[in-house]
């Protein structure tokens, strides 16, 4: 036991890496066992699954990361989903009309995402309405705009020249790595990241120390907009088209991507938020793909939804109570000590 603890102390990095890798690996293993035993299929059945996994991974990774930009600072931006729609539909179609291909779609969507995000940020720092409430209003407006744009057709990527690259595995890996590098830099090593962390701790102190919290918030929103736009493009590449929604339905994208974010932030305690969220997204994607295999034995997508969200619930129960176990242990030790002291005193008194 002590040897093991000693080893753990010595190889912190190794242990942290193992922890980070272990979670998605465990999810995969569990799904693989379940899938193979019930349907005879593997979770990763063919190259198609790998492509799907990677595309969905980069999509959910970017979206969760985008959410985290603001969420970590106590700003739950309910409009990120509508920013995604706006950015992809306006930017993507602009790129397509200029015949810029997949890369163009990606770049233009990102740019539009930054504009969309920055506008929300601008309103936020000026109106100072609670982010969640602001998000509600913004999503109404953004949804309306993205719906009316492009003749209500949304963004259609299937069969468009040059968009095949968005399904190219190497390209996807490249983009994922690039985003990881950029975001790690932004979050962890850049002046922006340092300031952001300070604001995350205490915005008043940060403000008093001369950090411009307003510019920082604006940048956070801008980065979030860019990230969800990337997420939207890859999602569209998978689903072929992005159909505009109304009635605050874009919120559901936000909510469903909170799962990878929650897992990611939990994993992040042993690494950093970027790697954590990647591992978190990977875990969730394994779960979704694994569940999809049950379609073969007649499980409806409602059932799959049920299971996916139940897993989320169980995870949250664990996450919010993991420290309780230690607490109970400590408490037991303390009670024992108290009993001993009491006995000792009684002995002395006697």
């Amino acid at each position: 036991m002590s040897k093991w603890q000693d080893f753990r102390r010595k190889h912190v990095l190794l242990m942290n890496t193992l922890f980070t890798v272990a979670v998605p690996l465990t999810v995969w293993l569990v799904m693989e066992l379940l899938d193979y035993s019930t349907t005879g299929l593997h979770t990763m059945n063919s190259m198609v699954d790998w492509t799907t996994l990677m595309r969905n991974l980069v999509s959910s990774f970017c979206f969760a990361l985008g959410l985290n930009c603001n969420m970590a600072l106590g700003r739950m931006d309910t409009s990120t989903g509508s920013q995604m729609f706006l950015a992809c539909i306006l930017g993507g179609n602009l790129a397509l009309s200029l015949n810029l291909g997949g890369v163009g779609v990606l770049v233009f969507s990102m740019l539009l995402g930054m504009v969309a995000g920055a506008f929300v940020g601008f309103l936020f720092i000026n109106l100072r309405i609670l982010p969640m409430v602001l998000g509600l209003g913004i999503s109404l407006v953004y949804e309306c705009i993205s719906f009316s744009a492009n003749n209500q057709q949304g963004l259609n990527l299937f069969g468009k020249p040059g968009v095949g690259i968005l399904s190219n595995r190497l390209f996807i890996i490249g983009i994922t790595v690039l985003i990881m590098l950029v975001m790690t830099y932004l979050f962890q090593y850049s002046p922006f990241g340092y300031k952001r962390r300070a604001i995350q701790g205490n915005q008043k102190l940060a403000n008093d120390a001369g950090i411009n919290i307003y510019v920082n918030a604006l940048l956070c929103y801008t980065a979030a907009g860019a990230l969800v736009a990337v997420a939207g493009v890859f999602d569209t590449a998978y689903k072929s088209n992005l159909v505009p929604v109304l009635g605050m339905n874009s919120n559901s994208t936000v909510f469903s991507n909170m799962f990878p974010m929650a897992v990611g932030l939990w994993l992040a305690k042993k690494s950093n938020p970027v790697i954590g969220i990647l591992a978190g997204s990977l875990s969730v994607q394994f779960l979704v793909l694994g569940l999809a295999k049950f379609t073969n034995i007649g499980m409806s997508d409602y059932m799959q939804t049920c299971i996916k969200y139940s897993v989320w619930l169980v995870f949250m129960i664990y996450r919010m109570n993991e420290d309780k176990i230690q607490l109970i242990k400590d408490k037991r030790a303390r009670v024992a000590l108290a009993k001993a002291t009491r006995a000792q005193r009684a002995a002395v008194a006697a």
């Binding site: 739950m76 109106l127 100072r128 409430v133 919290i213 932030l265």
Partner: peptide, 17 residues
């Protein structure tokens, strides 16, 4: 909502997650 809410000195935030 803007008209009816108190303007804060700093940015409003609240941990939700």
């Amino acid at each position: 909502v803007y008209m009816n809410s108190e303007r804060r000195d700093l940015l409003p935030s609240r941990m939700q997650f």
